[in-house]
Amino acid sequence: MTESEPTVPSTMAAPRAEATATNLPQHWVCTPPIDIFETPEGLVLRADLPGVTAETLDLQVQDNKLTLLGRVVPQAPEGARLIHQEYHVGDYVRSFILSDDVDHDRITAKITNGVLDLLLPRTPKPEPRRIQVRAN
């Protein structure tokens, strides 16, 4: 599995142009950090998506491209004045190219405490088949 063409700049976050154009509050898109590791069944992709729930996470597989989009709600109530900032609250976007040995139909995902666990099982190898040889 490789990361596909980044859909957002490789910097941590970037304001979304169309949001500023329509005078909405500035909207941020973040690239979430991920771990990928192998298990006997296949690959596990784990992503940090704080603030994202099962309802606000959208996972799509199209052709070989897996895209995750996690939407977050503002953490502070309206009218709160930001007096110190170390991170931007924004949606998470990242996409990956799946290799052919991932069984697309059996991909499962769960999200717990803001961490996504995506299981990418390997396609089962076809059983070896014996070819009968007949003598003439």
Binding site: A76, A80, R81, L82, G114
Partner: peptide, 22 residues
């Protein structure tokens, strides 16, 4: 963790991103 701090009328609100922390 990264921390943001907000001021509201009657409180300060400190938020931190702690994914995977129970």
């Amino acid at each position: 963790p990264a921390v943001n701090i907000y001021e509201l009328q009657d409180e300060f609100l400190l938020t931190a991103e702690l994914p995977g922390t129970r």
